[in-house]
Amino acid sequence: MKFNHVATPVKDLQIWNASSGGFSFVISYETRNGPGLHGRPGFVLSWRPVLQNRPAIKVGGSPFKTFEEAESACEIVLEHLTKLP
Rank of each mutant, 00 (worst) to 15 (best):
F67M: 12
L81F: 01
V77P: 00
S62Y: 11
N4F: 10
G61H: 09
S62G: 09
L45S: 11
Q14D: 11
T8Y: 01
K65S: 13
F3Q: 01
P41M: 04
S46I: 04
E30L: 13
H38I: 12
V59P: 01
L45F: 07
G61W: 03
K11Q: 12
A73Y: 03
E71D: 06
V59G: 07
S24V: 15
P63K: 06
F67A: 09
Y29G: 04
A18H: 03
G36T: 06
E68F: 05
H38E: 10
V44F: 09
Q14A: 09
L45E: 04
V10G: 00
V26N: 02
S19P: 00
L78R: 02
V77H: 02
N4P: 00
V59H: 06
V50P: 00
Y29T: 07
V10H: 08
S24F: 12
A70T: 12
P41A: 10
S28T: 14
I57N: 06
S72Y: 09
L51A: 14
Y29E: 14
V10Y: 09
V59M: 03
L13G: 03
P41T: 12
K58E: 05
V10Q: 11
N4E: 03
E30G: 11
F25P: 05
Y29P: 00
K65T: 13
T82K: 13
S46E: 14
F43Q: 06
P9M: 01
L45G: 04
W16F: 14
A56H: 14
E79H: 08
Q14W: 07
E69R: 04
N17K: 13
F64E: 03
C74I: 02
F25W: 04
S24E: 15
I27D: 10
R40P: 05
H80A: 02
A7V: 15
E30R: 15
P35Y: 08
K2N: 12
